Amino acid sequence: MMTNEQLAVIADQICPMYAIVDAKGYIQRVGPTLRKLRPDLKWEGRRFFRVFDLSRPRRVRSMADLVNTAGSKLHLHFRDTPQTSLKGVLVPLPQGQGAIINLSFGISVLEAVRDYDLTSADFSPTDLTIEMLYLVEAKSAAMEASRQLNLRLQGAKIAAEEQAFTDTLTGLKNRRAMDHILDRLISGGRDFALMHLDLDYFKQVNDTLGHAAGDAVLQHVARVMVECTRQSDTVARVGGDEFVLIFNDLRDLRQIEGLARRLISELEVPIPYGGKMCKISASAGTTLSAWHSGTFTAAEILNESDVALYAAKGSGRAQHCFYEKGMENKVLALDH
């Protein structure tokens, strides 16, 4: 006849989450994995029902009742915390010596592995739990790889969108970005001022010093404009030497005039390039969304700023003008 000790040695290998209980309900031995769940507990000699609370079958009140559940699935959990849920099945030992109860985690295995730092060595080599854990790990790895790929794709998408809205030479917004921002401001009913700025004498720089000098001048102009505006404002290069500045929530004419004068003054400072000085200036025209009592389009307000710009150029270089109704006729007269 096999002794309990011999039985336990075999059980340690093939079902390491077992408990051997004598006929009076006292624990005689537990498997290595079960012991790992409560390493400070002195298992031997403890009553099984003092360690575990059996939730199903509900009729079990004694060791005799427990033995009568042989072959049925047991639902139980630890009485102390963490109250890990377990599943079990009981097999009676010969000659009424008690029973061996094989336990498992069931669907709570993932939490148990996390809470008790279990490894594959804590399960039977044939336990499907191991395969499930490998599948979970593989799924987690695949999901993480997918998440990283999505992040890279999202980053690439953002970079592509940013590039599509950026002037590559100056780093400013381009015309497409300006159109998008204008449409958003107009549809949202936001107040803004729009300034159209054009460089004076830029063609002479290109003609006398070359396009590389012209590019350096444009990059310098972009830096000046960014420094003179707020972070909430928009500076866009919309043509060779044409720029549009959008000032959010700004309708103070004196403040706008001050900004224009500062920009023009800064841009009149000669720009060194290749041992020579590039001299330019700027003219600007501004209109305000607040001057429109009804609905208006981006094309209409851009045309107003363009008319004001030409009026400024007609008044002499390095000038700034606000748009006025009827200014179109004055500009036409200047052209003639």
Rank of each mutant, 00 (worst) to 15 (best):
M1A: 12
V9G: 01
V9Y: 00
I10D: 05
A11Y: 04
I14R: 09
C15R: 05
M17S: 14
M17E: 03
M17Y: 08
Y26E: 03
Q28L: 14
R29E: 01
P32Q: 11
L34K: 01
R38Y: 05
R46S: 10
V60L: 09
S62L: 05
A70L: 11
K73I: 15
L74S: 02
H75V: 15
H77V: 10
F78R: 03
L86D: 00
K87A: 07
V91P: 00
P94G: 08
Q95E: 08
Q97K: 09
I101R: 01
G106Y: 03
I107G: 01
L110N: 10
L110M: 13
A112D: 11
A112V: 08
Y116N: 04
D127N: 15
L128G: 11
T129Q: 10
A138V: 12
A138T: 15
A141I: 06
M143F: 09
R147A: 15
R147D: 03
Q148H: 12
N150Y: 06
L151N: 07
L153P: 03
Q154K: 11
G155V: 08
A156C: 03
I158D: 13
A164D: 14
K173V: 07
R175K: 11
R176W: 10
A177I: 05
L182T: 03
L185P: 04
L185F: 12
S187Q: 13
G188Y: 09
R190F: 15
F192V: 04
M195H: 00
M195F: 02
Y201H: 14
Y201I: 02
A213D: 00
A213P: 04
A216G: 07
V224F: 01
M225I: 11
F243L: 07
I246S: 01
F247Q: 06
F247R: 01
N248A: 15
L253N: 09
Q255S: 14
E257W: 01
E257L: 03
A260I: 07
L263T: 04
E266T: 00
L267M: 15
P270H: 10
I271L: 07
P272W: 08
Y273E: 04
K276S: 15
M277C: 04
K279H: 15
S281Y: 08
S283L: 02
S283G: 08
G294F: 12
F296N: 07
T297G: 10
T297M: 07
A298Q: 06
A298D: 10
S305P: 00
A312G: 10
S315W: 05
G316F: 07
R317N: 12
H320K: 02
C321T: 00
C321N: 12
G326A: 13
L334D: 14
